[in-house]
Structures are given as C-alpha cells and as structure tokens.
Design a protein around this nucleic acid. Structure first.
Lengths: 336, 336
DNA sequence: TTGAAAGCGCTAACAG
DNA sequence: CTGTTAGCGCTTTCAA
C-alpha cells in the first residue's frame, strides 16, 4: 500500500478523521482516551500528513520562493543561508531556483513560484531586469529584492557603501599611503559610484590627490586585464596602494602583479571590498571590508515574514530593494 | 479578489471546468472555438493554476527533495547546479534544505520531504549518519546519496580516486621529482585511503620511496597546522614535492610555507586534489586534479529520475552511493 | 467531546 | 467534443 492517510489512522484508532486532525493540530480539546488511540495509530502506521492537501484547504503553503542568480557565487550562498535559517525558525520553507542571470527564466520561475502557491518571493540577483520587477509588482504577493548592482528607483539601501569606502580609505591613509589609486568598473554600477564618493571624501579630507582608473567590469579577469594600464599609472603617479571596489577585482590585480614579479604588499599594497571568503586564505592577504551577507539574507527573510504576518501592511510599504550590512575593521594587511 | 481559479476561467469563457482543464493540459481534443475562449479568459484573468491542487489529485508532486550539508561549501553548490539543471530539464522541481551536518535536522528534513510529497530524495553530505540512511531505507521513495567521505556498505563508487591519484603521481614523477611526500587525513576517510593506494602504486612502479604523513583532518587549518612537522620531514627526507589528498590541505600547507618564506614552487612543489575553484586564482598556482562535481550532481539526478520513471525498478536496484566524475590532466604547475 | 459533511482547486472517468 | 460528477487528503463548521 502507498502512504497511509488520515483515514487509515482514523480507522485503526476507531475514531473519526476529524478527531485525528484535532490531535495532530491540537486545534480542539480531545479526550485523553482518543488522543492516545490516535497517537498510537499514527506511530504504528508511521503516518505523515500530506502537506499538499493541508496547504490546499488552509490556503497557506508556508512556502517562500527564492530566486537566485547562481548558488555557486559564494556571497549568494551566504545570503541563502541567512534566508534559510530565519525561514526555518519561523516555519517557512524555501523553494529555491536559480536563474543564471537569464531574464527569460527569471520570469518563468516567478510564474512557477505563483503556481506553487508561494506566499512571498525573494530575488537575489545582480541587476534584476525591469521586466521581472514589473511582473512582481503586478501581482499580489509580497516580494523583496536583494541586488548588489541594481540601480533602479528603489532607495532604501541599508549598506552604507559610501561610508565604508570612506573608512577603508582613512585606514589606508593612516598607514602612511599618500598616493592611493581607486579602481572601479566601467559600467558605473551605483554601489561602485558610492564607494568612489567615499574614497574621494577621505582623500579630500587629508588634502591628497585623487587617482582613479576604470576596469571593464568587476570580475577577476577584469582586474587582471587592467594590469598593464594599471602598472603604467602606478609608475607615473607613484602609487603606493591600490583600492579596488570589489575583492575580485583586487584578486585579478594581485595575480597580474604576481606574474610580473611585483610583490604585494612589499612593492605595493592592494585593498579590496566585500569580505570575500578567499581573502582570508589568500596569500598575500588581501585587506578588505567585510559585508555580512548572511545578515542581509536573514534580514530580508525577517522582513518578508513580518509583511506576511501583518497583512494589513499594504504592498506600498514593502521596501523592495533591501540591502543591509554591518561593518567591521578592515582585515588583512597593508604595508608601510 | 484572491487568485482566480479554474472556475472563474470556466465562467468567463462560458464553458465547463473540464474544458478548461483540457485546454490547459492538452489532454483531450477541444474545439477551436472553446479553446480560443478559454485561452482568452486565462489571459484576461492572468490565471495560474494551483499546482498544489493538481499534485494532490494527480498524486505526483514533481518534487525532488535535496538535502545538502551546506550550500556555502563550493563543491556542494557545484553539485546542486548539476542536480537543478537536469531536474529542470526533466520537469522536476527541487526542494532544497541544508542540514549543516546535524543528524538531528537531517532526520527532520527527511520527514519534512515526505510530508511535502517529494517523489525522491537526494542527500549531499559528508559522512551521512547511519540513522538517516536507515530512515530512508525504511521508506518507499527512492533516494540517492552523494557523499564524499562516507564509508558505509555501499560500493558503487564511480570516481576512481585511486587511479586519479596514480595519474597525478605519475605526472609529478615525470616532472623530475623523486621524493614525493603524500599528505592525507588522520581520520582514514575511505577516499583518502584510495588516493594513497594510487600514490603508492605509481611510486612503486618507478622504484621510488614512499613518504607519507597524516594531518588531523582535510581542512585548510589542518594543512597549516601540520606545517612544522611537515617541514621537518621535508628536510629529513629531501622532499621536493608534496601531494596533498585534498586541495584545502594543500592551501593550508602553501600558506604555512608562505609565512615561513618558503617559495612554492621555487623551493618546493605542492599538488592537491579536487579541482577547487580557488586553485585557479590562487597564486602560486596549485596543481590539482579536477573533479567534475557538476556532473556528479547531474548524473545523480538523471539516475533518480530514471528510477522514478521506471517504477518497475525495485528499490534494491537503487545504487545508494553514487559518485561520478571525469578526469582531466592536472593543471597548475610543478617545478623541476 | 465527537462525527458527518462540505469544500479547498484540480483531474479524470463517464455519459451524453 | 462537452458537461456532470466523484474524488485526491485534509481542515473546519455545524449538530449532536
């Protein structure tokens, strides 16, 4: 026989299915006698209730749909951990799906989440397409975006990138560096611009000169490819420290230096941003700013659940673009 | 109003709900006229069918439960990608849950997967507890284990660790190394023992001496902590290359050397095993053997789905311990 | 305290 | 080709 149902339990216990349901959910008083009989029957049959049926009648799936770009991206995995842990705590289950950055499949997955009766949706992406945002807005279920690079009309950005970069720059200056070169992307991601602003404030505060160069994007290879151009600037401007807007960029730069026999941090210092896991084990150690991605995930899930519980909250009060982090002293070491 | 149902569509289209169902599923012939009316109604209402209800009546959830130790472990994320991609292709959805290595929660999650009507279960762990295995065996739904270290009574291990380690050792010998020190864990994980066998075969084949030392476990810190002892052996035995059974172990060793100003690979060569993503960007580059974790995931999912489709396959034919990989030339560089 | 019965949204005979 | 009807396994009135 396939899985036992509530009927089988009722029959074995000699009670009605309502009584079984009441025992399982503690929803109404049940006599000690019946309760015992039901519990025994459940144990004997190894009965497990069908959550699908339950969700159907209760109109509550307890499911949160989570759409990520790619779980193999370490910081996203970190976010998911936060989402999951809080979800579990609050009895919400996560339905996870990866889009691999493809808008087409993002739209499909959103639809899919609706069909699976997800009660809310969280999207963890990098530059989420407006089509997806529009689709979410159209619908009735609450949603939250966690997006590093999206530069839309959402403003509640809880990571103070500007201040963090400012602090990092101060840290660098305090270690005796005068000529600090800031490296960011060419795509003008909003968060990189903010970091640049932070860098500039610190530089101005100490009456130093601003040095800046753009890479094509923020990945390791972009850092590496920037190498020759970067090296030229380093020599021209007597740069003693490079501050890359993203850890990956910094890794690329360090790798280029390594291949050119330029020692970090003996010949030149390099700082990154993001608190990449790699930074800890990478040699030479990378100075970086920790972003607490776990907390970003946990915070997002908490918020979504709060919205779910408090249905009086209209959709307008949902802050779609949520990013959050704490800051910590920069780690790693910078020479000089 | 909340989500429209099939009834709303039927009413708007002026047909019965069965017709709507038929249009949606292409399950029976429907007149062009009705079809058009239904499709229009669906579009107008933005109707999305309730998969929960559908699964209930069809007794098919299309859900595969996936239990992982931790998605933040890079190789596990890689496996999940494989699982997911094949799942999506074959129209199976994944319900993902992390156990963080806790047997208690693993057991709970298994129960949970049953209640959610998962059709099959895949567990991606490291040393899966026998309690969990027992629980799975007790039940009716098919399951697959993907476990790196589990040393149980399952035998169909599709990665030939022994041969891979043999090949790696040959590779090292061909580059002129005579005294090669093999480093593995102290826990005697089965796969590490296999690698050791491979190493020994190659060494014997070339009439060289076997050198071997144990770390406490296979993580970065274990490699680092082994440092002093390792260095002593290196000097005593005139070791020119270290072959670590796991990439992480190798990273720890290289880091220790770095801190001791010992240059890799100029002063000594280091090889790892696993094909860690990190190996690619790490400087000095680590020689390593690629394990195709994506393929392991994809293969496991294919296998599970095959079992699902072919219900005649009894549970006995399930190979619970599935591991699979292709091999590739060792990458990275080894001096001398 | 308990059971009978209705119904969640859907599919699948069955009869027309 | 189409509509009516009987459930899937569960929760929840409503009476008893």
């Amino acid at each position: 026989m396939s899985q036992p149902t509530i009927k089988d339990v009722a029959k074995l216990a000699g009670v009605s299915i309502s009584t079984v349901s009441r025992v399982m959910n503690d929803s109404k008083p049940v006599s000690e006698d019946s309760r015992k009989k039901v519990e025994d029957a459940i144990k004997k049959l190894d009965f497990k209730r069908n959550e699908l049926a339950r969700s159907l009648v209760m109109k509550r799936s307890n499911i949160i749909g989570v759409i990520v770009k790619d779980i193999a991206i370490p910081y996203m995995a970190e976010i998911i951990r936060g989402l999951e842990e809080v979800g579990r705590q609050k009895k919400y289950d996560i339905f996870l799906s990866s889009s691999y950055g493809n808008t087409e499949s993002e739209l499909e997955i959103v639809d899919f989440m609706f069909r699976k009766q997800a009660e809310g949706i969280i999207i963890v992406g990098e530059n989420i397409s407006n089509d997806v945002i529009y689709k979410l807005k159209e619908n009735t279920i609450p949603y939250i975006f966690i997006d590093k690079f999206y530069d839309g009309d959402f403003s509640s950005n809880l990571i103070d990138y500007e201040k963090s970069a400012y602090q990092m720059t101060i840290e660098i200056i305090k270690r005796g560096h005068k000529n600090i070169l800031f490296v960011k992307d060419d795509k003008d991601y909003k968060i990189e611009k903010l970091k640049y602003e932070g860098y500039k404030s610190a530089i101005r505060e100490y009456g130093l000169n601003i040095f800046h160069i753009n890479a094509d994007d923020v990945h390791i290879e972009d850092g590496y490819n920037l190498g020759p151009k970067l090296l030229k600037r380093v020599k021209e401007d007597k740069i003693s420290c490079i501050f890359a807007a993203e850890d990956d960029l910094a890794f690329g730069i360090i790798n280029y230096f390594y291949d050119q026999k330029i020692r970090v941090p003996d010949d030149i210092s390099v700082a990154g941003f993001g608190g990449s896991k790699f930074a800890e084990i990478y040699k030479p150690t990378l100075a970086t700013f920790q972003i607490y991605y776990y907390d970003i995930g946990a915070g997002a899930m908490s918020k979504l659940i709060k919205i779910l519980k408090n249905k009086s909250l209209s959709k307008d009060t949902v802050t779609p673009h949520l990013v959050h982090c704490k800051m910590e002293e920069s780690v790693g070491f910078l020479n000089k």
